[in-house]
Structures are given as C-alpha cells and as structure tokens.
C-alpha cells in the first residue's frame, strides 16, 4: 500500500536526499519527475531522449543536492535548471544547427508574441508539447530558453556558443514557425470537426 507523502515538506525531503536516503530520493522523484519530464520533453525531439535526460538529471540532483541553496528559490526551479543544462549538453553533442538572419526583422514577432501566447495557452498541454517538440532543435532550444525558462539572449548565446544575434534570429524563426504550425493545427482541427 502506497503511503501518502504529500505532507512531507520539501526541506525534509532535501535533507533526506542529502543523506543519500533512498526513500527520500524516491519521494523527490515522485514529486517532481512529471514537471521535469515536461521540461525535458520541450527540449527533445521525442519522449525517448527526454526520459534519458530525466534520468541523468535526477542522478545529478541526488549527487549534487548538497549544493542546493533554498534561498535562491524552490527546489523545482533548481532541478529544472539542471535538466535544462543536461538537455543542452545532450543536444550540444548532436550539434544544434543555427541559421543567422538579420536582426531588424525580429521586432515583427514580438508584437505578435502575446497573441501566440494567448492562442497556445488555450490548448491542451500535450498539444502544446507536440507543437514545440516539432520545432527544429535549434529554434526550439532558443525558444524554450528565452520564452519558457527566462534566459536572456546573452546567456543563451553563452550556453550554445553562438552569437547574440544568432540567438535572436533563432527565436524569430521559432516564433514564425510556431505561428504557422498553429494555423495548420487549427485548420486540421476544423477539418476534423
């Protein structure tokens, strides 16, 4: 019979994890693996590598939990950052392809961003995941880092060893492509209805 562990606070779980106690590690995994898998999937082409990244993330989390500083935010944010780093490492190996475009075109999409956000957020999470997952790796990575995980272009440029303008152009492309996919998705849905 499974015990309800929801009453156990994060700080207790973290303490248990830092003592390498397996049951607390499992609690942490049960509590946050779903959310972290979402992040991993956003950076992956499909669920297969996403689960690998999830595994690697938690192995690292259990190993480095003593480095977590609660003053800097909730544990889930820290784990998510590790997951993002793992995902980036994973995809650096597969060489993210980036295409540079002129930076003066980027403003076009910023205006439309709120509109896309509004549209996208109405969809079911799994649909959003599929839409984002279907973006090319380079676009998707910059898109996720910038819009969903809150990194700046300079940080992204550093992470991915690209220029700031390339990061901006990738984002531009990503937004444009996402918009197209949204339109197509809407069309298909209407046809089905």
């Amino acid at each position: 019979m499974k015990r309800n562990t929801s009453h156990i606070t994060d700080s207790k779980i973290i303490l248990g994890c830092s003592r390498k106690q397996s049951r607390f590690q499992k609690m942490l995994f049960i509590r946050y693996s779903g959310q972290i898998l979402t992040t991993c999937r956003l950076y992956s082409t499909n669920d297969y590598p996403a689960k690998d990244i999830l595994q690697d993330t938690f192995i690292k989390v259990f190993d480095k939990i003593h480095q977590y500083n609660p003053d800097r935010g909730p544990i889930v944010g820290w784990i998510r950052r590790i997951a993002i780093n793992m995902a980036l490492d994973h995809y650096k190996k597969s060489k993210i392809r980036t295409v540079h475009i002129d930076s003066d075109t980027e403003e076009l999409l910023d205006v439309e961003l709120a509109e896309i956000d509004d549209t996208v957020s109405r969809y079911d999470e799994e649909v959003i995941m599929q839409l984002i997952q279907s973006l090319p790796t380079g676009y998707k990575t910059v898109f996720n880092l910038y819009l969903l995980d809150g990194y700046s272009h300079s940080e992204i440029a550093k992470f991915l060893s690209i220029s700031i303008s390339t990061s901006k152009s990738q984002l531009f492309k990503a937004k444009k492509l996402l918009k197209e996919k949204l339109v197509n998705h809407r069309k298909r849905r209407n046809e089905n209805v």
Binding site: L113, I116, D117, V120, S121, E125, I128, L147, L148
Partner: peptide, 9 residues
C-alpha cells in the same frame, strides 16, 4: 509568454 510558460511549468 507567461500563460504558456505557467501552464507548462
């Protein structure tokens, strides 16, 4: 992009 962000997170 906060709506989508919050939803996904």
């Amino acid at each position: 992009f906060n709506k989508t962000k919050d939803k996904l997170h």
